[in-house]
């Protein structure tokens, strides 16, 4: 059974495991944690379409599988198109009486930041624009972690990756992160949200809303990657939480075009606290950190203006 009503406490999270143990994810993997909760929400009657990436590789090494749901993986750049195909097939088969018309089966697409922001963007855009009834979850670990921490369009300013290394001339990524929520918003889809595993109730309730949406929805989840971010296995949630507390990651929801901040932050922590925890930002100078602080200040200002209130407050030193 899918979880169709919002929850108020952790005790209400369904006990049933549908993304089961024994898979090969790293200890402290943020994405695996997110998938575990996602499958708890969507329940049995959901078909999962997975792009190539960490989560596909760790969960389906033949002859084993971590999935109790029907699950399909075709390639890296086509989760949107494959999900469209599954949804169209369900529609046709239900209309023709092959499948039960009254049984709702949700199509859930899962892809990483590479499979969404970069190589899968066209396929995602087509899926959103055509209005398929698909819930698309992007787990964003901010680089191509599966192939060994290469820079993606989701890699934030200043981050070290193996293709934006720290050298004498260049010091990490020099471009800001792509705004995937803005891109989804431009498609005028009914439901878009950002989520974070450090705020599980907020995250689960967003999955519930995406599940209840009829039409395309997109949930963008920040998923810390312990080897890629250079953090200890025990710090996944702590880092994820700091992303929200510093304003680097704002928990948003855009329902039928109306934006809202779901977890307000009255007083922000300085970005330094978030950056200092992670090896990928170790090389940053005071000047770099100052620049990132200014970027975040500007981003927070934009968000506040967009939602029409001071949802994210000033930095408290």
């Amino acid at each position: 059974m899918a979880l169709t009503k919002p929850i108020k406490s952790l005790w209400e999270i369904p006990r049933e495991e549908r993304f089961v143990g024994g898979h090969a994810a790293c200890q402290g993997c943020g994405a695996a944690l997110v998938l575990r909760h996602l499958t708890k929400v969507v329940g049995k009657d959901a078909i999962i379409v997975n792009a190539t990436g960490c989560m596909e590789v760790i969960s389906t090494l033949f002859p084993r599988t971590a999935w109790r749901n029907p699950w399909l993986h075709l390639a890296f750049e086509n989760a949107g198109a494959a999900a469209s195909g599954v949804e169209a097939a369900l529609k046709a088969l239900q209309r023709k009486g092959v499948l039960d018309k009254n049984r709702y089966i949700k199509v859930v697409a899962i892809a990483g930041d590479g499979g969404t922001f970069d190589i899968g963007l066209q396929s995602l855009s087509g899926m959103l624009e055509r209005g398929h009834d698909v819930m698309y979850v992007v787990y964003d670990n901010e680089a191509y972690m599966n192939t060994g921490i290469q820079r993606s369009g989701a890699t934030p300013y200043g981050a070290w990756t193996t293709t934006t290394p720290v050298g004498k001339k260049f010091r990490g990524e020099w471009r800001p992160k792509k705004d995937i929520v803005g891109i989804a918003y431009a498609h005028r889809i009914p439901y878009i949200a950002t989520a974070n595993p450090a705020y599980p109730i907020d995250m689960i309730n967003k999955f519930v809303k995406a599940y209840n949406t009829r039409g395309p929805s997109l949930v963008h989840v920040l998923t810390p990657c312990t080897p890629g971010w250079r953090i200890p296995e025990s710090k996944t949630i702590e880092v994820a939480k700091l992303a929200v507390q510093t304003g680097m990651w704002v928990l948003l929801e855009i329902e039928n075009g109306k934006p809202k901040v779901t977890v307000k932050v009255r007083k922000r922590k300085p970005v330094r606290e978030y950056l200092k925890m992670q090896g990928r930002f170790r090389h940053l100078t005071e000047e770099d950190i100052k620049k990132i602080q200014e970027m975040v200040d500007k981003y927070v200002e934009e968000i506040n203006r967009w939602v029409g209130e001071e949802a994210i407050g000033p930095v408290e030193e």
């Binding site: 399909l72 198109a81 092959v98 396929s123 855009s125």
Partner: peptide, 22 residues
């Protein structure tokens, strides 16, 4: 169901996924 895909790559992907759905 006619899927007006945005590329042939997606055409083949959607066709394979639809077949996989039966």
């Amino acid at each position: 169901e006619l899927i007006h895909v945005e590329s042939e790559h997606s055409a083949m992907s959607a066709a394979v996924a639809a077949a996989a759905t039966g």
